[in-house]
Simulated assay, not measured.
Amino acid sequence: MTFSIVARSADGLAHGVAVASKFLGVGAAVPAALAGVGAVATQSYANLAYRPQTLALLQTGVSAAYTVRALVAGDGGPVAQRQVGVVGADGEGGTFTGGDCHPWAGGAAGDGFAIQGNMLAGPQVVEAMGVAWQASVGESRLAFRLLAALRAGDLAGGDRRGRQSAALLVVAKGMGYGGTSDVWVDLRVDDHPDPVSELTRLLDLHTLYFERPDPALLMPLTGATAEEVRKLLDGKGHTQPGLDDALADWAGIENLEERLVAGAIDPLVLDQLRGR
């Protein structure tokens, strides 16, 4: 009833899950992840106990494949209808598809990823996701790699019953809001006619509001740039004597505080200030 990818970033610092389904609020049931440890997707008559069990097992240093075997062995429910994917801090991912899952059902795993789906349009869904995952190796941001794979699966037919919900979860040490959380991205589309496209829109907004600026792109608040910023801020009623203070006052109202750097301005922030 669902297709997902569980993966680790190339540098090993981030872990996450992207999932879509003809199921209400799939993000509330399928994904779980713990920074520096790993991630899991439990689906097809999902056993939600797999989520804490997986993370506890991975914390002991066991492999993703062993974790999958342990989950299945310890499940007293309808294991033949279960599906699960796991990735740990290193090594290959692990995936399991019970023999009684609604067809088409199956998965694939490799270094740092596991892809799985059930009640799919066909094996091409998993295959397309794998191709997209490998093709995005040049993208350093795990959230965008996961979403690219999910989008490929959706375009290949996805859940054969149709579309309803999608979710994206990414964790990494200190990468959450304000540096006080490990939850880097946690976006959910619970009920929508085109949930993967909506998830893409939300990730673009998340990037604007919550990603930190690229130091190489920062513009010093001097000269003509400082003059323009001051004029724009004055026009919006932010007239504090210090330019950094005035910019921070405006940015806090616009939810752009994560992109502030003293003495400089992010080009994306400047575009927003200009009203673009």
Rank of each mutant, 00 (worst) to 15 (best):
M175L: 15
M119E: 00
T60M: 09
D75K: 01
D182C: 11
R259I: 08
V79E: 03
L34F: 13
Q116F: 06
L199W: 07
S165D: 04
A128H: 03
H206D: 11
P103N: 00
A246M: 12
D75S: 02
S44L: 01
D90I: 01
F3Q: 03
P215L: 09
L243Y: 05
G179Q: 09
A70L: 08
L146A: 06
G76D: 09
L243P: 11
L203Y: 04
L233D: 08
D100H: 00
L199Q: 12
A80N: 02
L205P: 00
A156W: 09
C101Y: 01
L270T: 14
A33C: 07
Q59W: 11
S165K: 09
R69P: 00
R160C: 13
H206L: 07
S44H: 11
V196R: 06
T95F: 04
S44Q: 08
R163I: 08
H15C: 09
D249L: 08
A114R: 02
R82S: 04
L150C: 09
N47E: 08
I265R: 13
P213V: 04
L24N: 04
Q272N: 14
A20F: 09
D159E: 07
H238C: 08
F23W: 07
G263F: 14
P31L: 12
D204H: 06
R212D: 12
A73Y: 01
A39R: 12
S44D: 02
A28C: 12
A143S: 14
G153A: 05
